[in-house]
Computed example of a mutant assay.
Amino acid sequence: MISNVQLDVERINRKFKDIEERRNTIIKGTRDATILCSKAIVSIHSHKKNESIENIDKAKKLLQQFKKMGKDDLQRYLYIAEQEFVEASSLFSLVENSSIPSMKTLEVSDISYVMGLLDCIGEIKRMIIDKIRIEGTSNVHSLFELMDKIYGIIYPLAVYDNLMPGLRKKLDVSRILIENVRAIITEEKRRSIMIEKIQEFEKRINTLSENTKGK
């Protein structure tokens, strides 16, 4: 009378046991991939090219492995690691003066691609601040334009926040970062102009002083 029920429940049990085992493996593995990408980002900022390449490649292999394991039912557990991978890969491309890789090239989901690019805006800000600290504002304008363009291209997707949870929040954070950088660059320019004027004034004073002594 209940033989069919018994068979179906056993089948359901096997199905969910398989899902649970794959889920646990993916969660642990993607955590490792996320750590590798974080290390790659640190290496990029430290100008350790080979180290960053190695970590990005390792992360990519892990993600490819777990993407297959995730099949169609567990892909969402890859999102965080994929976002970090997109962020690291995009940042590396920018440092190498290359085009940002496509979603197809990186083999990530559309949600991960968009979120990872927005996260990259924060890393571009860090690059800009480091450059200003060392070189001044002369070489930061292209980077600032880039972070603004990334934001501008992605912004129309804000209407799909219900399908990409957290997108609007990341856009808001990115906008704040961009405005912060704009303010920093503007203030640094004003400071540089003021320093130049002070130096020019000091030169005039010194010249007048020398002329007075000569008389």
Rank of each mutant, 00 (worst) to 15 (best):
I12N: 06
I185R: 09
L143A: 05
R22V: 04
I19R: 13
V9F: 14
Q83T: 02
L143H: 08
Q64E: 15
H47F: 14
A40W: 05
S98W: 03
I128W: 04
E84V: 04
I56S: 04
R182Q: 12
I205M: 12
R126G: 05
S112F: 05
I134C: 02
L63D: 03
K67M: 07
I150G: 02
K15S: 10
D18I: 06
Q199K: 15
E82F: 07
L94H: 02
R175Q: 14
I195A: 12
K15M: 12
V95I: 15
H47S: 15
M127P: 02
D172C: 08
K67L: 05
I195C: 00
D18A: 14
L63S: 05
L91E: 03
L36S: 10
T207K: 15
K170P: 02
Y113R: 06
I129K: 04
K67V: 00
D72Y: 12
S93R: 09
K131N: 12
N97A: 10
M164S: 04
S89D: 04
F16H: 11
T186A: 14
E196I: 06
Y113N: 03
R204W: 04
Q65R: 14
T137Y: 03
T30K: 09
S142A: 13
I176N: 10
D161F: 09
V86M: 09
R14I: 07
T186G: 00
I44C: 06
V181M: 08
T137H: 05
I176A: 11
L74Q: 06
K189G: 00
F92T: 02
L177E: 10
S142F: 08
D148W: 08
V173Q: 11
Q64D: 15
R22M: 08
E10S: 13
L146T: 09
